[in-house]
Design a protein around this nucleic acid. Sequence first.
DNA 1: AAAGCGGGGGC
DNA 2: GCCCCAGCTTT
Length: 350
Amino acid sequence: MTHFTHYIYQWYDQNQRALPWRLTRDPYLIWVAETILQQTRISQGLPYYHRFVGRFPDIHSLAAAPEDELMKMWEGLGYYSRARNMHAAARMVVNEMGGIFPQEYENLRRLKGVGNYTAAAVASIAFGKPYPVIDGNITRLFSRYFGILEPADTPKGKNTLAGKTREAMNHSDPGYHNQAMMEFGALCCVPKNPSCHDCLLKDSCFAFLNGMTGLLPLKNKKIARRIRRFYFYLLENKENIIIEKRENADIWRNLYQLPLLEAEEDLADAAILSNYLTRELLAGEKPAVQKISNTLRHELTHQIIRAKFVRFKMPKLKASGNRIIINKKEIHKFAFPVLVRNYLAGTVDK
DNA sequence: AAAGCGGGGGC
DNA sequence: GCCCCAGCTTT
């Protein structure tokens, strides 16, 4: 065994966190955990994991659930396609694979939402197969220690990294190996101000020896952010409000929201109150506008959303198209984007 | 190869 | 303000 792996195993034995998915080898539970944790910190995902496996303890309960309930479980976690894909994958396992979770990497890879990382994680942790996982932690750790100078977000960089992780793989306990590498990256070889001073690998670490820990891993991509203006309409009477489901290929797909006008430029209040959607929603009624909120900012990785909420008390509610009227007491049953959820939490019944 | 997809937290 | 997080899919 190399110095590198030996030291990290030793570190892991002493420093690993107690996490619920480390107590099982059930491929379903491992898959749920790995999917929740995609691009998500453990501290954020942990309560979702507990709720999820409490409500859906096995593949059958998940496959049998209505999608809206699944989206509700996922509310606030982000990247909602993960939930939709899990639902499809669960139904595939139940309907086409006899309810038996696939064991081979290639078969795991066929499930919706299961990419290279998740297939390797389930194959290694649940089934002991020697597939190295490559996540953000391992990309950083390996790029630094082995001095990978090709950008990590390019095919060449990924290929080099994959080679290194295959060389490092320990075939006697692949699941342990993968988790030890990730945990070391997550807790010690961290993005900013890594704990090099205490790290016994510093004498053989390329980045440390060359003063490059802050530079590695290299990345090429820069994110362009788009500004969007959203005008939401809260139409309410004493008991009910109107909501609608987002079904286009856009952010928040299959979540619910308030009726929405998107504009390319900021709209003055007069324009908000006279545009086509206002007229359609008010349907001839002339209610006084209750309130137009301040502009609320909501930032996503690729978008900056500037939102205003317009509130009308309606004599009676009429819903057309894909809009539905729900009782205010039922709001909690629907999955809303955080932006909308926060507004409703601070507004309705106040 | 690049873009799109959330929300939260660290510094 | 910028970067990153136990990534995946679509174009």
